[in-house]
Design a protein around this nucleic acid. Structure first.
Lengths: 347, 347
DNA sequence: CGCTTTTTTATAAACGTTTTTATTTTAAAC
DNA sequence: GTTTAAAATAAAAACGTTTATAAAAAAGCG
């Protein structure tokens, strides 16, 4: 690999002049600059990364910690963040926490396991002197990522930072559920069952609020029995649908597409026609939703937008000399209804 | 951040002694070693990454270049590779080539666009002095990744290196298609239509060979008209199914699950019962295959195994002083038939 | 005990940059 | 033509390690 010194020799100038040329310092003559640039171009010189990192304070690397790279939504978010940051001449280092080997057969709680993976990863990133860290949670919840004395820009995406010092980017679940419910009501449905997610989950809570608000705005009495709690799995969608059907709902709002698929399973098994007899909507716009029959109406989580917004926030912190804990914020990315075939108008 | 010098001062020894202790050199007294280790433990010292990288030849980083992180299969492969390498105390840096912004609306061929992204990425990785590079192709084909004078270990996964100097890891398509065809024959099918992928694709070619071999072994005459070429999309699956149905096939072998979903669309539309009237099998074991009704019998691409095998090969090259171009190899990972509900026995 | 050998520790150079400081050259002013 | 200021270039120090070399201490041996 060619070095600064060699470039300097080839140009017959000193290494500091070459360095100044590269870094766009003003104190280098026009003719010299041209010559140096020409040689650099010709030789394809690139500064040694480690030497540079050692000398400079900033490395122009941002660390991305993904809780689980294979979890729904994580990859598109990561992709978008990488794209944005690269566009601004930042590099990224990705760490995937969910290293299956480490996580198997230990007696610890998932939160303990997570922390025991997370903390070393943060140290790791700190030791390579990243300029910032973005943490992508596997599912939306309050999460304790960064210590209180963290000095570099750090945000948490798809989850809420326990420590309010850090900015979070999440989806607007209240509005999302509100939109879905309003849509169902606009199609004539008044008795709308809900297959919720896990009870203590942030998504679940916010979406229930959105659902309630829509009912309230339309002067429909809220019936808590119409809310059944699942656990995001297909099987739980199947089970809860049974209860909802028995209560005579005309539409089912499932809080993710996978449970909606479970609902399909039940309805199909019982010979109840989806859309014609009971309308179903999901949430996520998971790939599977377009392959269910009838194609599932759902609420798209705008993963690319989430990633781009996160990158924008990080960039903002990076460029405008960041002061720890200043102006933390919660950004909510709206979802978008995608209407397919699983909802029919009634009355 | 604490430094080697400070550790040395705290211990009252020289920095080289501390360095030797850390790196497990033999020439340090037992008592000194204990003391130094204790201080390091207590202070949580970590060597400066850049200083180390600058001094040492090896960085213990391997670069992963993903052609398209959001492409089917890429993420699980990446995950598995990361897990394996981290288990052996290697770091990874991931680069995603498919940066949407760069790829839109330019008049270039996809291969040109790819190369114009790939070459800078390789330079990038080289400039951070990675010890090895693994390239993960977006789909299986012969691909020109690495220049002939590449000096560090490099492999291509999910594709075949054009330059035979480099090791490739691919799936065993011949055997996969052979197994599927054999299975269909064992279920009584003798007139088996194929919805192939794109014509010039490696998957396509090898799977056709496997299909032919199975027919041959079972003494069934091969009819080239029974092979229809699609382009991996749902729409093409729909279209080609029409032709196949007209030719009176009793079973359809679709070369991916998405096209099989297209086949479902057609059959459903025409009132032809899947499984009962015509059997369908897919390929990939894409997430959607379990959500189609009836659930699709398909051939699972063992992504985790692919990743692990790739990591193993890379590790092997890394640890046993690699000599460029020596013993390149093509490793084929077998697929695994997953039997669901879309195939029925006939006769 | 003095000599050599081995073990342990210390010193200094090197890695390739950036940055601060110093020096030289050029231009401007008198 | 000399002095001064500005511009351009060069020299040197620093970043935090590792390693080669040197030095010191300890051990072995007649």
């Amino acid at each position: 690999m060619i070095t600064l010194k060699e470039i300097a020799q080839m140009c017959g100038v000193s290494i500091s002049t070459v360095s100044n040329t590269i870094n766009g310092k003003p104190n280098v003559g026009e003719e010299t600059r041209r010559k140096v640039l020409e040689v650099i171009e010709r030789t394809g010189y690139k500064p040694n990364y480690f030497a540079q990192g050692m000398r400079k304070q900033k490395t122009r690397i941002v660390g991305i910690i993904a809780e689980d790279l294979t979890a729904f939504g994580t990859t598109p978010i990561v992709s978008a963040i990488m794209a944005c940051l690269e566009g601004h001449n930042y590099r990224t280092v990705l760490i995937n926490l969910r290293i299956y080997d480490k996580w198997q057969d230990t007696g610890h709680s998932s939160e303990q396991k997570l922390q025991s993976s997370l903390q070393p990863s943060i140290k790791e990133l700190l030791s390579i002197k990243v300029d910032g860290i973005v943490y992508i949670a596997g599912h939306c919840r309050v999460i304790n990522c960064f210590p209180d004395d963290f000095r570099i820009p750090a945000i948490v995406v798809y989850g809420l930072s326990k420590n309010p010092r850090f900015t979070s980017v999440i989806i607007d679940d209240k509005k999302g559920a509100y939109d879905i419910t309003k849509y169902l009501i606009s199609m004539g449905h008044r008795r709308i069952g809900v297959i919720a997610g896990a009870v203590d989950n942030l998504h679940t809570m916010n979406r229930i609020i959105g659902y309630q608000q829509a009912l309230f705005d339309e002067k429909i009495l809220f019936n808590p029995d119409l809310i059944r709690y699942g656990d995001w799995t297909r099987a739980s969608g199947y089970n809860e649908t049974g209860h909802l059907v028995n209560m005579g709902v005309t539409a089912i709002f499932s809080m993710n597409d996978v449970m909606a698929a479970g609902a399909y399973d039940y309805l199909h098994e019982k010979g109840i026609r989806i859309a014609d007899d009971i309308s179903v909507v999901g949430y996520d716009n998971n790939e599977i939703s377009a392959y269910l029959r009838p194609a599932l109406t759902t609420n798209q989580i705008q993963l690319k937008e989430i990633g781009e917004e996160s990158a924008k926030i990080m960039l903002e912190m990076l460029e405008n000399n960041y002061t720890p804990g200043k102006n933390p914020d919660i950004t909510e990315i709206p979802c978008q209804l995608v209407i397919r075939e699983s909802v029919k108008r009634i009355n």
